[in-house]
Design a protein around this nucleic acid. Sequence first.
DNA 1: AAATTGACCAATTGAACAAAATGGTCACAT
DNA 2: ATGTGACCATTTTGTTCAATTGGTCAATTT
Lengths: 190, 190
Amino acid sequence: MSVDRRQLIVEAATKSFSLFGYKATTMDQVAKTANVGKGTIYTFFKNKEELFDEIISKLILEMKVAADEAIDENAPFIENVHRAIYRLLEFRKEHQLTIKLFQEKKEMGTPEVLDVVEKVENTILTFIKGKVQQAIEKGEIENCNPELTAFIMLKLYISLIFDWEKNHEPLEKNEIAELFERYLFKGLSN
Amino acid sequence: MSVDRRQLIVEAATKSFSLFGYKATTMDQVAKTANVGKGTIYTFFKNKEELFDEIISKLILEMKVAADEAIDENAPFIENVHRAIYRLLEFRKEHQLTIKLFQEKKEMGTPEVLDVVEKVENTILTFIKGKVQQAIEKGEIENCNPELTAFIMLKLYISLIFDWEKNHEPLEKNEIAELFERYLFKGLSN
DNA sequence: AAATTGACCAATTGAACAAAATGGTCACAT
DNA sequence: ATGTGACCATTTTGTTCAATTGGTCAATTT
């Protein structure tokens, strides 16, 4: 049997999306990179957006797996927050696509990208929310609104990654983790 | 002596900027609203941007005054955080311009507006930073990076105001204040 | 003389149209 | 049956030109 054309297409598209973003990636280009006729793409995917969605779905799955692997059910919540943050930051580095996506969202606002980023964020929110609920049940943290808490954690994370370095030196992994511990956990009060 | 034409111009411009934003406000319109020849505007202001800047500078001054008035030097830090947040939220309501500005920044990205919003944010950051430093010196809160702390507080504030209500019911003033207390101050840990 | 004005100008913007590029299809080739 | 690229409809991009707009200044008013 010949090479898996579907796989080739997905790989070519992933590479192109990661390099140029969604909008700047053309189906002709994907076909050429995959060494495949353009029509072939459409035997596997209804359209460009579905190809994109499949790639993102895989990315989300990988993220989930990575996060799950990072977490130790028996470790205290705060340690798992540390672990998850470290893993997520690594993940970002490994997957250029995540970076390109946020960039295209902010700079061009491509609708398909907005959709997809929202999907990613919602997945993360749901994930965190679950962990927060567990921690509450275990009595590890105060009773609080898990959805709001997840929202704040994600926003804090995004601010520290994307916004802080607009006017300052980027923060190190351990700095970010420490900030989470200091501000969200221990609190500032004396 | 006749009416203060400069004042008329500033008032007309403020009204128009608040209603239509920076870009959609024309100098002809400002002149007409102020019952003034267009040329007169240019005897007081070098150009449109300077007129804008003067209005924003005044807005920033008013904000500072409002914040200073809200704060009681003798009250504990956390209470002043509450007071400042309440005052800032009121201020936003009173000054349509602040809302219009953030909107135009996000939707159109007008460069002059980007500049000006950054200026406003930096002023707030500097203000908070000062208060945090005081609180540290007084031993009211843990020793922490005042700049980073101010940054986190502002980002949290903006997220709760602008982002949370994209997918949820807007938060009440007291809810926002409570969130600040719970997350930044007390911390989540048990 | 000093202050004010609006017709005027250069630069910018945006509407309208043409050209190029792109997503998606399908008759044909393998 | 599977794969393909020429082909088509639609969208995007480039271009032109008229209308708009920021800014000036000679004429006018105070």
